[in-house]
Design a protein around this nucleic acid. Structure first.
Length: 894
DNA sequence: GCGGACTGCTTACCT
DNA sequence: ACAGGTAAGCAGTCCGCG
């Protein structure tokens, strides 16, 4: 089963119903910046002019949806409780008459009532009557180990039905959607958008400027159908509204530990918290230290403006931290879910601080706040899509230091000793830097990260907490679910989609894959001047749009659609009705390509506006890039393999057709991958012809993406080097750019790269070739003469993909090195980068720390230098062996 | 017992 | 837990080899 039994918020430790009684337990906290006293819960007033809807939960006490509104003027959070009487529910195909027979259901304490509802069944393609089973509590629907309504119905009905009823025909739908999501979908509320409270009711704000922009957009998309335009406008309305300033604070804690290098257990919370730092957007900078006996003041400078406060008791220190957590609307941590907030909460309990005084809600995998929104930046930066598409793989190490160094150029303070041995000054300095860095991860480039999370919350329809923690497939699922509810379409169960439309028909090139993917054109080896790169902008989303792909439309039940075949597959696509995916993904794609990308570069707009548009187009890019893949991912709740397969098949068809056309137009294609073509010195009219043909015949645009002054291809696919007119060098796939190879080799490679950047025309190539040969020779000689700097220069840095025990089939070199490290008492876990060098004696590897320079296997390094350079030398008509002076005979003998 | 041909595993990359 | 395709390097296996 792809769906999870329980959600994070139902797994909150302790008894959810005892969390903060609304009327009796009022917690009053005075914050440090002279604001008003805070009363909990901070109810929204009867009238509130404008506040952003940032988060929501189910409140077990009032049994209502609870919405957090962020009001940027005062920088406060207000709580708004549902006033419409909306309740949790699920749907079933059993009639109320049948359901009445199920005693356990009727007697269930959370059960409220039945309603008959008409819904559209997307898999049967017709209206159906279903029963809405309404409950008083979302946990009654699902979330209790036994005795949840969603389980009782299929389990109990066959027993009471009289005749034999198979469990399979009894359906329960929409029982696994979190209540606050369900609430938002039904009430058509949008996370991240501003609302006003008027006489206690929530009303969306309308902004004149945003509406004006929507009007402009409407004019741009003249060719869109009415249905498409409707969706484009709906998205644009979400994206045109500006972002607020986020009042926020980053915190970081340090815990005393007797053993250096061991992370204290956040659940046990045995050791005292000795230091906490705070960095606020309102310039509140603070370090709180626990006084300990015999500790030196020590030397060390805190940046100016940082308050230093000492506490005699840890309890007082923690209470002081809690004031901050009861105060700020947004709290930032780096790994606070697993460590900082979790430790604080457990430590507080250990010290006898009352539950109601603790501002943290500790879940199984997350830690949330009772007042504000906790954003764990570790979780956000861990997201693969964010890493790749939003930050272009700029950071590699998923540590605070790694991310900050790559993005901000800021580093943690290096420690020579354990926390236990630091003086007050050293500890304060160290701790403060961490919260400073954490904060700055959200403030660089005009608060990009906060805005990105906001935009993603709007598009996905998820609270900021969730959107910052969950992956792109959840975001996509959420906006598709939202559209189902909007149109009164039953949200299908994953297993029903799969049993109806689960089969694929093509054979993947790679063993173990489910279907065939993209085409890579065999490159023509050599150096070519004036290479034009053309590509289909967001090819797969375009295909989903144009071919009307979706789980409903593929293999639809209509006879007449069966002739509408996807090229090279037996799959047909519906001709009667537009699929939700086609409309939603297609309109997002069109908006990005034809509006947001252009606006982000529009010099007539203010810098601020351009930056906003740039963030928006970046968010769209992240989503669009994943919008095809999710349909081929089992974990996606609308998993539908033929949709993914059809998308890839049309992709292959498109590039194959354009290759043929290029040949007809006598344009030589040097290379191509998935959605791109590299053309050899084409004329303007040839390019024009090609793109016109694609527009007419394939109904797809193809753009001239860039022109390389020259490009170097080896005979290997996904391996090339291109020099743009401005001298920038694009290196793709070559070993020389891979992050794990030794700096020594990378250095030599980069020298070659810099030299190649200077070549302007074929004539200049000859002297460049001589220089490159010298670079290679220099590297070779240095190795031969063992003239490297530190051993670090020779270290390979390979990420350990799994925990050490997991490697049973083979033992790769980095695993060998990691095991040696472990024997030496170093803690090793999945995701660690292992640095090792190649040595002469068995087992031919050693962790850098443990190796000495005389045991290096120089010949191995020469072999690596050789293969790294071969990828380029081939094309330049140079030979590694000749460069290093091997005679033809010696080469023959070797 | 050893080397070459082969397959499989693992990582890092491309679109 | 978005997909499939490609390259590289090494580990492990099989088989021939008087």
């Amino acid at each position: 089963m792809a769906q999870r039994q329980l959600d994070d918020y139902s797994q909150i430790e302790g008894k959810p119903k005892k969390v903060a009684k609304v009327d009796t337990q009022q917690i009053v906290a005075k914050n440090g910046v002279g604001r008003k006293r805070l009363v909990f819960p901070p109810l929204a007033p009867e009238n509130l002019s404008s506040a952003y809807l940032v988060s929501a939960t189910y409140d077990g006490v009032s049994r209502k949806a609870l919405i957090r509104l962020y009001e940027p003027e005062s920088g406060r959070i207000f709580f708004w409780y549902d006033n419409t009487g909306h309740k949790p529910y699920c749907l079933t195909n059993l009639s109320p008459y049948d359901l009445e027979k199920i005693d356990r259901l009727k007697r269930h304490q959370g059960f409220d009532h039945f309603e008959i509802q008409k819904k559209f069944d997307p898999l049967l393609d017709k209206d159906v009557k279903v029963t809405k089973v309404v409950a008083n509590d979302p946990l009654a629907i699902g979330g209790r180990p036994q005795g949840s309504i969603r389980d009782i119905i299929p389990q109990e009905f066959p027993k009471v039905a009289g005749t034999s009823v198979s469990t399979e025909v009894i359906k329960v739908w929409e029982a696994r959607i979190r209540y606050y999501q369900s609430y938002f979908y039904d009430r058509r509320l949008f996370f991240g958008m501003p609302y006003e409270v008027k006489k206690g009711n929530l009303i969306p704000k309308v902004l004149v400027e945003a509406e004006r922009a929507v009007g402009k957009i409407r004019n741009i998309f003249k060719d869109a159908t009415a249905e498409e335009l409707e969706h484009i406008e709906r998205w644009a309305r979400l994206l045109e509204y500006p972002a607020p300033k986020f009042r926020r604070a980053a915190i970081d804690i340090e815990v005393y530990s007797s053993i250096a290098n061991r992370v204290p257990d956040a659940h046990e919370a045995t050791y005292p918290i000795i230091c906490v730092s705070l960095y606020g957007s309102d310039n509140q900078k603070k370090v709180m230290l626990l006084r300990r006996e015999g500790l030196d003041q020590g030397e060390g400078n805190l940046p100016s403006g940082v308050d230093l406060e000492y506490f005699d008791s840890e309890k007082q220190l923690i209470k002081s931290v809690f004031k901050v957590l009861w105060e700020y609307p947004f709290v930032l941590t780096f790994n606070g879910d697993d460590f900082d907030l979790r430790y604080l909460a457990h430590r507080a309990l250990n010290l006898g601080i009352g539950r109601e005084e603790i501002p943290i809600v500790v879940g199984r995998r997350v830690c949330l706040l009772k007042y504000g929104v906790h954003i764990d930046l570790y979780r956000f930066f861990f997201n693969r899509s964010i890493q790749i598409y939003a930050f272009k793989n700029r950071y590699r190490d998923l540590t605070l230091n790694g991310v900050a160094k790559a993005i901000l150029g800021l580093e943690k303070i290096r420690l020579e000793k354990g926390f236990g041995e630091l003086s007050y000054a050293e500890l304060a300095q160290y701790c403060f830097r961490d919260s400073e860095i954490t904060f700055k991860l959200t403030s660089f480039e005009d608060e990009l990260v906060m805005k990105l999370i906001l935009v993603l919350a709007r598009i996905s329809g998820m609270p900021m907490e969730d959107v910052s923690r969950q992956g792109v497939s959840r975001w996509i699922r959420s906006f598709l679910y939202r559209e189902h509810r909007r149109r009164n379409i039953l949200i299908p169960n994953s297993e029903d989609i799969l049993s109806k439309k689960g089969k694929t028909s093509t054979k993947a090139v790679i063993k173990g894959k489910k279907y065939k993917g993209a085409i890579v054109v065999e490159p023509v080896p050599g150096v070519f001047f004036n290479v034009a790169v053309m590509d289909f902008p967001s090819l797969y989303p375009s295909i989903i749009k144009i071919w009307n792909l979706g789980y409903q439309s593929i293999l639809c039940p209509h006879q007449e659609c069966q002739a509408n075949l996807v090229p090279n597959t037996p799959h047909w696509v519906c001709t009667r009705k537009r699929s939700l995916e086609s409309l939603l993904i297609g309109s997002l794609r069109d908006l990005r390509v034809n509006w947001y990308k252009l606006r982000s570069k529009d010099k007539d707009l203010s810098k601020e506006l351009r930056s906003w548009y740039n963030i928006t187009q970046g968010a769209l890019k992240v989503i669009l890039n994943a919008s095809y893949g999710v349909f081929g991912a089992e974990s996606f709740d609308l998993y539908c393999p033929p949709v993914a397969e059809a998308t890839a098949a049309v992709g292959r068809h498109s590039i194959t057709q354009i290759l043929k056309k290029a040949e007809q137009l006598r344009i030589q294609v040097l290379y191509g991958d998935t959605d791109s073509l590299f053309l050899k010195n084409p004329s303007k009219s040839q390019i024009e012809n090609l793109s016109q043909w694609a527009e007419e015949e394939l109904k797809m645009s193809i753009d001239l993406e860039k022109v390389y002054r020259y490009a170097v291809f080896s005979s290997r696919k996904k391996n090339y080097l291109g020099v743009l007119e401005d001298g920038t060098v694009d290196v793709k796939g070559l070993t020389g750019k891979k992050k794990h190879i030794p700096l020594f080799i990378k250095g030599a490679f980069n020298k070659m790269k810099d030299r190649l950047a200077q070549v302007k025309n074929p004539a200049e190539f000859e002297s460049a070739k001589r220089d490159i040969a010298n670079i290679v020779l220099e590297g070779y000689n240095k190795l031969k003469r063992r003239e490297w700097g530190t051993l670090n220069e020779l270290a390979f840095n390979v990420v350990l993909g799994d925990s050490l025990e997991h490697y049973t089939k083979t033992t790769p070199q980095h695993v060998k090195a990691a095991r040696i490290l472990k024997e030496n008492g170093v803690e090793i876990k999945a995701g660690d980068r292992i640095s090792f060098v190649k040595t002469l004696r068995e087992p031919h590897v050693k962790p850098v720390e443990l190796a000495s320079r005389n045991e290096i296997d120089v010949e191995k390094y020469i072999a690596h230098l050789h293969s790294t350079f071969d990828q380029v030398l081939d094309a330049l008509d140079l030979s590694f062996d000749e460069i290093i002076g091997l005679t033809r005979l010696e080469r023959f003998m070797a």
